[in-house]
């Protein structure tokens, strides 16, 4: 295992033919650059433009004429007063604050159990990875079925409770929130496990053996040797899950549609619903833009700090 995290300055060892090489390099990177322009730069400029208007696809005028519906910064001031937006944002952060630590601890625990060899290790490892490879939308349908009032979750509860349990999980705000969280943890704990195990296996064996000979207990070895060595990997694993969890849409939307009410409405579901149901696209563009700017700032700071951490 080697670290190449965020190593953006690849050393270039060029000697001869530098001009031809440079030209070829530009040609080779051109398709990617065009695609980035096409999906990132141009759409974002368009989004800025539309976000300053009342434009909606139903108005019958093309988006390029949206300036006729100029509303100064009304969308942005509306946004400040939009309780549903802020509660969706808060809920998204809450989901993250529950899911990511639970997935991390479960993944770390599993990685500890898997770090050295035992009969059946390879097979059980593969089986454990299955949930993260299931299409998230399909996982949504799975958990939708599991949490039906006549479904298997209630069946298991009935078995332990001794009497028929018929909880309507997805119809109760708190229980629905619990159910979508369970589906996220089910699907993404394997990812934490996979990454953390890869990091743990990379810890040099001889150091651990030496520490054992010196009489260090398992807990001491883990705390003083394994964890510090895994610092970067832990940061990467957490960062990936934070990023992905913030986008969460598929399984939540399929299980509950954001409901009941807005009980499971995350920021992506909120934007989707406003786009589809209320069709005020100028406003949605403003919402999306605020999210993009906030994420850019946060991620720029995080990437800077992380690359400093990695180069240490």
């Amino acid at each position: 295992m080697t670290m190449a995290a965020l190593d953006t300055n690849t050393p270039v060892m060029e000697h001869e033919d530098t001009r031809d090489s440079r030209r070829l390099g530009i040609w080779l990177t051109l398709p990617a650059q065009i695609l980035v322009l096409f999906i990132a730069v141009f759409p974002i400029l368009m989004q800025v433009y539309i976000s300053l208007t009342d434009w909606s696809p139903l108005d019958g005028i093309g988006w390029w004429q949206a300036h006729e519906l100029w509303n100064s910064f009304a969308n942005y001031s509306d946004l400040m007063a939009d309780d549903r937006f802020w509660s969706a944002l808060g809920r998204t952060v809450l989901v993250m604050a529950i899911c990511v630590p639970v997935e991390f601890l479960l993944g770390l625990g599993l990685a500890i159990l898997f770090v050295d060899d035992f009969p059946g290790r390879r097979f059980l490892y593969s089986v454990l990875l299955i949930p993260m490879m299931v299409v998230p939308a399909v996982a949504g349908y799975m958990f939708f079925m599991l949490f039906q009032s006549g479904g298997p979750v209630n069946d298991i509860l009935s078995f332990f409770y001794g009497a028929p349990v018929t909880i309507a999980w997805l119809a109760d705000p708190d229980l629905a929130f619990f159910a979508v969280i369970v589906s996220d943890i089910w699907q993404w704990t394997p990812l934490m496990f996979l990454i953390l195990l890869a990091g743990m296996v990379g810890v040099p064996e001889d150091q651990l053996r030496a520490a054992t000979l010196l009489g260090a207990s398992w807990a001491t070895r883990f705390r003083t040797i394994v964890l510090p060595r895994m610092k970067t990997i832990i940061i990467i694993a957490l960062a990936i899950r934070v990023i992905e969890n913030f986008k969460v849409f598929d399984n939540f939307y399929i299980m509950t549609g954001g409901g009941p009410g807005v009980a499971t409405e995350t920021i992506s579901i909120y934007i989707y619903k406003v786009t589809q149901q209320e069709l005020i696209w100028g406003y949605v563009a403003a919402v999306a833009l605020v999210i993009l700017i906030a994420l850019s700032v946060v991620s720029a700071i995080a990437i800077k700090r992380m690359s400093r951490g990695v180069s240490q």
């Binding site: 440079r22 390099g25 934007i271 999210i291």
Partner: peptide
Amino acid sequence: FGSGGNLPLALIQLRIFPPMAVMIPVMI
């Protein structure tokens, strides 16, 4: 050849953005 030095960070950024927030102009 060290060309396209802006790509790594641009592509990380692209990855960080929630698709829902980028998709409105794309739909248009």
